[in-house]
C-alpha cells in the first residue's frame, strides 16, 4: 500500500537518506527503530511531502507521492503525527480537530460520527473541547495530535516518537491508542526510541543506521533474538 523504493533525501548538501526502501501493507503496524539522527524522522517527512526526495519513489495506493505537495498527500489518506506534536496552540481542541474535518465530500452526519468516535476513544478531549490546544498537558496534546490525524480518515498514520517526553503512565496510554488504531484497520508506521513498546505493538520492524535500512524482520523474531537489537541499538 505504502512503499518507499530506494529513496535518497538531502537537506541542502547533507545526504540524509541513502536509498531507503520500506513497505507498509494495509492494516499493519510497522516499527522503524534506530539511534538519534539516522534519518527516521526524515523518512516520515519525505513520505509526507515535507522534504522532496532527490531520487527514488514513494508510492501510496498507486499514487506517486514523491514531490506531491503535503496537503495533497494528506488528502489521499496519509495522516501525520509529528515528533513535537505541533498542536495549533491558539485553536481550541475542537478547532484543532476541525482542521481535518472541513474537507470536500464529508457531510455533517459523517463529521459528527468521526468526532463522536474520537471523543469515545479519548474522553478527555470531549471535556476540553473548548479549551485552547496550548493549555493541554503533554499527554493530552499527544492524544489530540493523533485524534486530529484520525479526522482525515487516513489509511496509514505516520507516528513520530509518540512517547517522547511522556510520563510512564502515559506511555501505556499511547500503547492503548495504537491498539485502537490497529483495531480500526489503520496501518501505522511508527518511529520510536522506546524499543520494548515498538517490539510489542509492531508486526514488522525495520532498523535504520546512517540513512539506510540495516535490518528488517518480524517483530516476534526480534523479541526472541535480542542480539540484533543489541548490535544496532546498543541495548
Amino acid at each position: 500500500m505504502l512503499a518507499l523504493q530506494d529513496v535518497h533525501t538531502y537537506y541542502g548538501k547533507s545526504h540524509i537518506l541513502h536509498g531507503v526502501s520500506i513497505d507498509v501493507r494495509p492494516g499493519e503496524v510497522v516499527g522503524l527503530l534506530g539511534r538519534n539522527g539516522v534519518g527516521k524522522s526524515t523518512t516520515l517527512k519525505t513520505i509526507m511531502g515535507l522534504v522532496r526526495p532527490a531520487q527514488g519513489r514513494v508510492v501510496f495506493d498507486n499514487h506517486d507521492v514523491g514531490g506531491m505537495p503535503p496537503y495533497r498527500v494528506a488528502r489521499i489518506g496519509i495522516g501525520y503525527v509529528p515528533e513535537d506534536r505541533r498542536i495549533f496552540r491558539l485553536l481550541t481542541v475542537l478547532e484543532n480537530l476541525r482542521t481535518g474535518l472541513d474537507r470536500h465530500g464529508l457531510n455533517e452526519a459523517r463529521r459528527e460520527q468521526l468526532l463522536e468516535k474520537v471523543y469515545t476513544n479519548f474522553p478527555v478531549l470531549r471535556e476540553r473541547r473548548n479549551q485552547a490546544g496550548g493549555t493541554l498537558s503533554g499527554g493530552e496534546q499527544q492524544m489530540l495530535a493523533i485524534a486530529r490525524a484520525m479526522m482525515l480518515e487516513p489509511k496509514v498514520i505516520l507516528l513520530d516518537e509518540p512517547t517522547e517526553g511522556l510520563m510512564p503512565r502515559m506511555v501505556g496510554q499511547i500503547h492503548q491508542i495504537i491498539k485502537v488504531l490497529h483495531a480500526e484497520g489503520v496501518a501505522i508506521l511508527l518511529v520510536e526510541q522506546n524499543v520494548p513498546l515498538t517490539l510489542e505493538v509492531s508486526d514488522r520492524v525495520y532498523i535504520m543506521e546512517k540513512g539506510v535500512v540495516r535490518h528488517h524482520a518480524p517483530a516476534a523474531e526480534l523479541r526472541a533474538n535480542h542480539a540484533v537489537i543489541h548490535q544496532y541499538l546498543g541495548i
Binding site: 509526507m48 515535507l50 496537503y71 488528502r75 509529528p82 479526522m151 482525515l152
Partner: peptide, 8 residues
Amino acid sequence: VMAAAMGI
C-alpha cells in the same frame, strides 16, 4: 507545515 499535513 502542520496545516498542510492536515490537508489544508
